[in-house]
Design a protein around this nucleic acid. Structure first.
Lengths: 221, 221
DNA sequence: ACGGGAAGTTTGACGACTCAAACTATAGGC
DNA sequence: GCCTATAGTTTGAGTCGTCAAACTTCCCGT
């Protein structure tokens, strides 16, 4: 396969393209995500473009080609299956598995990947609620809404956590907010930029609107 | 830790030192095992020496320092635990896990390693019968003898398989020779350079002396 | 005890990836 | 419509690991 470095660029561009309305990633953002200077990102993106993995022209945005998207989904599959394995089988904390998976995902061969998938029972979602691409590169994105868009009194299940920094995940779990747990919106305070949520165990937590926009909910009825 | 390349050199030197009577590895052998030219091996060994991982002087043999040995044992622990995991948990074939482990061993963090060890129940041996170094770098080498040194009529358990090339492992299993299975030496034919062994299931197999020297046996009484 | 071949070393170059810093295009404010 | 701040690009250089090929040392056999 592509080198580890190339895989990391593909992942970054994939993620940034999804997040941006235009479906394109900027050099500055790519550089920031990969952790290099913009100059380095430019030359690397040129290489991706000449390998037909990305579409790019000078001073224009960067996006993945079909081939690049396919490769990115493959990496995402490896990443999310590894995360699931680390939590389900090795009982590691969901807050730390992201960084571990980041290293392991590049060393997983197709053989090991499919064995892992079988062992885990072909899961559709990883421990953070992110959908796992299928072996043939299909990605199921269920209809869920950001907690920040739920009104007072809304109820549902916590479906997915987008912000996977260790401290964010620790905070959520410490307050009873885990994937698949039932939650209810207790109150919304636009003035304070705050949303108060009640967890399954009855406890309440306040989240900022920014934090709430990164928690996705499967709303009920 | 050290870079992946450095880890591979350490592993190679460790293995070759054990195999050689002098406890030293030659440049040519190191180069062959790592898969580079001797020139490359020379410059790399120099680097290991200046990092105090290896002892070396021009035109002299190469051996590991205490620090280098410690690092090599750590890599060996990762390798063998990963192999055990691939066979025990993921049900992969013992004949293919070596190459897979070769890639994965470099991506395993201490955290994942210890979780793996716990999950597997702190095994002492991997699927090929190789002892797994403990977390503090102790390696238990049980008293076992090469099959090639067993006389006619000797009985015992197959303890360990040194030759881990895919075709060798496939051959052994195809003939009922697996780690922990009971075997008996049916006849020894020094003239033909051949040893005939009876497996647990009653079938007989002929092995060359070279092949038999790479199969270790725990002899009974 | 020496000559030749094997083992080991050195040198110069290269590809992958990176940075710092000089440079250029673009878009938004006035 | 110009002008500057910001985003992006280019260039020159460095590190790591590698090779090919020229070179040196060692040691064995006669």
């Amino acid at each position: 396969m592509a080198t580890e470095t190339v895989e990391n660029y593909l992942k970054a561009i994939y993620r940034l393209s999804l997040e941006s309305p235009a479906g394109e990633a900027s050099m500055t953002h790519i550089a920031a995500v990969v952790g290099v200077t913009t100059g380095t990102a430019t030359s690397m993106v040129k290489k991706l473009a000449s390998a037909r993995l990305a579409k790019y022209q000078r001073f224009g945005g960067v996006s993945l080609s079909a081939k690049g998207t396919r490769a990115a989904l493959d990496i995402l599959r490896r990443h999310r299956l590894v995360e699931t394995f680390l939590v389900e089988t090795l009982k590691l904390d969901w807050a730390v598995v992201h960084d571990e998976a980041e290293r392991l995902e590049h060393a997983i061969s197709p053989l090991v990947l499919e064995a892992l998938d079988r062992h885990l029972g072909n899961p559709s979602f990883d421990p953070h609620g992110d959908p796992i691409p299928s072996a043939d590169g299909k990605l199921l994105e269920p209809r869920v809404v950001p907690l920040s868009e739920c009104g007072e009194g809304a109820m549902g299940r916590l479906a997915r956590v987008l912000d996977q920094r260790e401290e964010s995940l620790r905070f959520l779990r410490r307050h009873g907010l885990e994937v698949a747990s039932r939650i209810a919106v207790e109150s919304v305070e636009p003035g304070a930029g705050i949303i108060v949520v009640r967890a399954e165990d009855g406890r309440s937590v306040a989240l900022s609107e920014v934090a709430a926009s990164r928690v996705l909910v499967q709303v009920e009825e």
